[in-house]
């Protein structure tokens, strides 16, 4: 007997599939993890808002049956701040990429973290600008090739989780599409946080990053994730030579700080108390 996959009820009916994502792209795996996390938390779709910027990952809002806001390049977090502040009852997820969040949108990223606006930011990091054909991004590792770095990049890369924590985020975690079960749990934790929560999802781009850097097909790139990532808890028990050159995953930061809309409600109460 054929039954409908439980995720389907969260997908938009009609003509929006297949997705714009290339075969082998990791973004669909992240989308599945988000949907399952929302389902497990039982958040009604009407209360869900998915806000995105511009780029491959930012096309996700079209596919999920939430309130969705596909904004301009880099500005998703600033739009999302307006949504959340206007109606704090809404659950706001921001879908963004490494270029969208960290280059053109870097200022909004750090300031939303500083304010501790209740946003669940899922940063799909594929280390490249995919939609525009493979230019280097703030997370392209130094020396790696891109269409605008034919000899390899000369720039160092950002650590988005460290950046978010330094800026004041209450939650920061990094997962991979290889470790999708762990990733889903991180997203679930992030969605339950009251405050600015970041989940960085490492998502391979075989079409551009993989091809330009000869890293093989999607399977090989996901295999690479398996072999080159170590969970933070495991890494803590290993000698430094065993973790050198590896990417650390896991939850890096989990704090309780009064969220922005709650602080602002206090300002409303104060202003109304002073009202003549």
């Amino acid at each position: 007997m054929i039954t409908m996959h439980p995720s389907f009820e969260m997908l938009r009916p009609g003509k929006k599939f297949p997705t714009v994502w290339c075969p082998g792209c990791g973004h669909g795996i992240v989308q599945g993890a988000i949907i399952r996390a929302v389902q497990k938390l039982g958040i009604p779709r009407d209360q869900m808002v998915m806000v995105s910027g511009i780029g491959c990952s930012s096309r996700m809002p079209v596919y999920v049956d939430f309130n969705s806001l596909h904004t301009a390049h880099g500005r998703a977090i600033a739009f999302a701040t307006g949504v959340k502040l206007h109606n704090p009852k809404l659950h706001v997820i921001v879908i963004t990429g490494d270029g969208d969040a960290l280059a053109i949108g870097g200022n909004h990223f750090i300031h939303a973290a500083r304010r501790n606006v209740e946003l669940t930011v899922i940063l799909l990091n594929n280390n490249i600008y995919g939609m525009t054909g493979g230019q280097y991004s703030p997370t392209t590792p130094i020396g790696k090739r891109a269409s605008t770095a034919p000899y390899g990049t000369a720039e160092r890369d950002f650590d988005p989780c460290a950046l978010a924590v330094a800026a004041g985020a209450v939650f920061a975690a990094r997962g991979t599409v290889f470790g999708v079960v762990e990733l889903e749990k991180m997203i679930q934790q992030a969605l339950a946080k009251r405050g600015f929560a970041l989940v960085e999802a490492l998502s391979p781009c075989p079409t551009l990053y993989g091809r330009l850097n000869r890293e093989g097909n999607a399977v090989k790139m996901i295999q690479w994730q398996k072999e080159n990532t170590i969970n933070a808890k495991a890494a803590a028990k290993l000698p430094p030579e065993k973790t050198a050159g590896k990417i650390i995953t896991g939850v890096f930061h989990d704090a309780e700080v009064t969220p922005y809309t709650e602080v602002y409600q206090g300002i409303i109460d104060k202003a109304q108390g002073q009202k003549q």
Binding site: A78, T81, G82, V83, L85, N107, H111
Partner: peptide
């Protein structure tokens, strides 16, 4: 907000909501 781009963006986000 942190700049005018963010100012109009957050206004439009609130307006959309």
């Amino acid at each position: 907000m942190e700049d005018e781009i963010a100012g109009i963006a957050t206004m439009l986000g609130a307006g959309a909501a």
